[in-house]
Design a protein around this nucleic acid. Structure first.
Lengths: 249, 249
DNA sequence: CGGTAACTGTGTATGTCATACACGAAACTG
DNA sequence: CAGTTTCGTGTATGACATACACAGTTACCG
């Protein structure tokens, strides 16, 4: 079964991602294409959330039957992978800025956070597989570039990048959840009020102080939406700088 | 509708979590209780993954009909919240170790990571709501204790704790996914082999080097399963130490 | 003590979803 | 032109969450 040109066969799903799926030459002309399906799915996800993305819904959007999608995509999961990859198409234009590893890495981290913000449904993705999609690897490539010349070994670099990008995802998710809780529910949830209601002074002395000091309050609109992300990021960058310093002879 | 003793009514779901749901006194004795349902659901999740936890499956496990569960739990989502909370019951016994903030925080972080490892299905949780469950707040309480005396303000402390605990979750998830990819698929996925197949030297010079240097290889069994987590943690602890140092007068 | 209201467990039904399967039409290949 | 693919589609299946109504059960009230 091994192709002469392919030593390793890509696992199902990845072949499509990397444009290596065989295309048949017989039969009727396809009236549809993968990109159109993915684009329609992304539109739906952006407008109504990832939960609204069902095969039937996407099919309606492109004007075909539900089952026709399966001629282009083997799975719903595969479609999700394609969406995830397509959402990061902007990487191709991204350029690192700055002279030091710290500034370069910061620009990388912010770009990643902003990319997620632009397609916020990403935070609801099952995210089952390790990142082997083209754009994920592109991000890693650029990230490695940012860390070039730091003296860190490759394993450490990869872990640093994993640390930052996973945190970008988690931060986006928490921001999204907080926003959902504020706006969507029948009664908008007041985080601080609940905290005060529930945290008794004897059982939670520290939290009780925090809850009543106002430190747990929402910053309110108008501020920098990425303020918390920046804070976390600088902490991690400080830690990374220590690591780099230590690796230097 | 406001109770005289409750200034704020807890949103649905949280009342049960905090043991504040009204219990009726009439009617037949309940043949079941929430704890048994949650315990059964956790057993299933541990044995077969969170996806195997359906209302029907849980009901069968406790020997009742599917619909009977809804007498104790309003939602499947509520059940998931209860599982999540119950999985962290060990917090109650947890004690910080160490004299410095760094060692205390490290012990806290490791305990959290290990707690997730003990109930690995947690990584598959939708995690829709901000952490307001009793055990989540307990973790935060102990974490604040670890940071006591550092001179950080409450907001910074909360963000630090959020950073660490979110990373514990992400790390567990990636470890779990990697393990799934290795063992579960029809063909076990060889991450390095795929990387080498897909990463061309011209387009991905940095990654190409990493892929062929062996730095992306799996460490193999026998080693410390938390080695990567420890690495990331120390980086973050270094950054936190810088932050603390800076906050000092 | 009898009525009533609240509560329990259950069976049935509905709607959503992913997806298997088979069929007829279309287009390329030899 | 005959055979082989491939396309778009209709239909069917099996999970799943959950609404709803019913009958039996228990506690409280007058």
């Amino acid at each position: 079964m091994a192709e002469p040109d392919d030593q390793t066969v890509l696992p199902p799903g990845l072949d499509l991602l990397w444009g290596r799926r065989e295309v048949g030459r017989r039969g009727p002309k396809p009236g549809l294409n993968v990109d159109a399906i993915v684009a329609a799915a992304i539109d739906i996800a952006n407008a109504e959330g990832l939960a609204a993305v069902s095969m039937a819904r996407v099919a309606k959007a492109v004007g075909f039957t539900t089952m026709s999608l399966y001629r282009y995509v083997t799975n719903k999961d595969e479609l999700l992978q394609l969406m995830w990859n397509a959402s990061a198409d902007g990487v191709m234009e991204f350029e690192l800025v700055g002279d030091t590893a710290r500034t370069r890495l910061r620009s990388w981290a912010m770009a990643q956070r902003e990319a997620i913000a632009r397609n916020i449904w990403i935070v609801q993705m099952p995210m089952a597989t390790p990142p082997l999609a083209p754009n994920s690897l592109r991000w890693m490539e650029v990230g490695l570039e940012a860390l070039d010349g730091t003296g860190l070994d490759d394993g450490d670099k990869m872990r640093i990048l994993g640390l930052i990008s996973s945190h970008a995802l988690i931060d986006a998710r928490m921001a999204y959840d907080a926003q959902q809780a504020m706006g969507a529910g029948a009664t908008p949830v007041d985080y601080t009020a609940i905290l005060r209601e529930v945290v008794e002074e004897e059982r939670f002395p520290q939290l009780h102080r925090v809850a009543w000091s106002g430190a747990a309050d929402d910053p309110g609109p108008g501020g920098d939406p990425f303020a918390e992300y920046r804070f976390d990021l600088e902490v991690m960058l400080d830690g990374i700088e220590v690591l780099i310093e230590r690796a230097r002879p």
